[in-house]
Computed example of a mutant assay.
Amino acid sequence: MTMTRTQLAIVAGIILIAGALLYAMGHPLICKCGYVKLWHFDVVSAENSQHLFDWYTPSHIIHGFLFYAVLWLAAPRLSFGQRLILAVLVEAGWEVIENTDFVINKYREATVSLDYYGDSVINSVSDILFMVLGFYLAAWWPVWLTVIVAIALEVFVGVMIRDGLTLNVIMLVWPLDSILQWQQGR
């Protein structure tokens, strides 16, 4: 789980470039409310995805688990640092793509995120850093613990907000009225 200074610099550079791209795309650095909260609890609000942590933070930790597993299997000869660079590149790329008008509108059409207008830069950077945390945890923990924590995070978030990584993917790829109605509390 060691990384060279060059690898750390590449990871930091990817994160900075993603933040700069998001800002250039018109996303605010911080919440338009003018302050930064550590945690924002209300999913159905203009401040969702605008602060450091929110209900979608666990999905980014799970991204780290998944990226570690896939890269460990697909590229076993790469060093930990090289695999982390690839994972950060994919996560940062997703953060930029997720915040395009096309994907934002898709979220608003197919999910309960009717007031979603994209992430703040600080939230997207935080999301990438939580993926990095998940990647490190997956490298450090035994597989069984990583799987149990991933399932527990998905179930917990699903119970708390009727959403999560799995539901988010389903609703973006194959929207189902039954899931949407359940998410809306019907």
Results as ranks from 00 to 15, higher is better:
Glu154Val: 00
Gly118Ala: 04
Trp144Cys: 03
Val147Lys: 10
Leu167Asn: 15
Ile151Thr: 06
Ala150Asn: 05
Leu129Asp: 15
Val121His: 06
Trp140Arg: 15
Trp141Cys: 07
Phe135His: 12
Gly158Arg: 01
Tyr117Ser: 10
Met160Thr: 06
Val132Asp: 13
Val143Asp: 02
Val147His: 05
Leu165Glu: 07
Trp144Lys: 10
Tyr116Gly: 14
Leu129Gln: 09
Tyr117Leu: 11
Val143Arg: 14
Pro142Thr: 05
Asp127Glu: 02
Leu165Cys: 12
Ala150Phe: 10
Thr166Pro: 07
Ser126Asp: 02
Asp119His: 11
Ile170Lys: 15
Gly134Asn: 04
Ile170Gly: 00
Phe130Ile: 01
Thr146Tyr: 11
Val157Arg: 00
Ala138Arg: 11
Ala138Cys: 08
Ile170Ala: 13
Val157Ala: 09
Ile148Gly: 11
Ser124Met: 09
Val155Glu: 02
Ser124Pro: 00
Tyr117Pro: 01
Val112Gln: 04
Gly158Cys: 07
Ile122Asp: 00
Val132Ala: 06
Trp141Glu: 04
Leu153Ile: 01
Trp174Gln: 13
Gly134Thr: 02
Val112Ser: 02
Trp140Asn: 05
Trp141Lys: 04
Val159Ser: 02
Val159Ile: 13
Thr146His: 06
Asn168Gln: 15
Glu154Gln: 12
Tyr136Gly: 09
Val121Asp: 03
Leu133Asn: 00
Tyr117Thr: 13
Ile151Trp: 12
Trp141Tyr: 06
Gly118Met: 01
Val121Ile: 01
Val121Glu: 00
Met131Val: 01
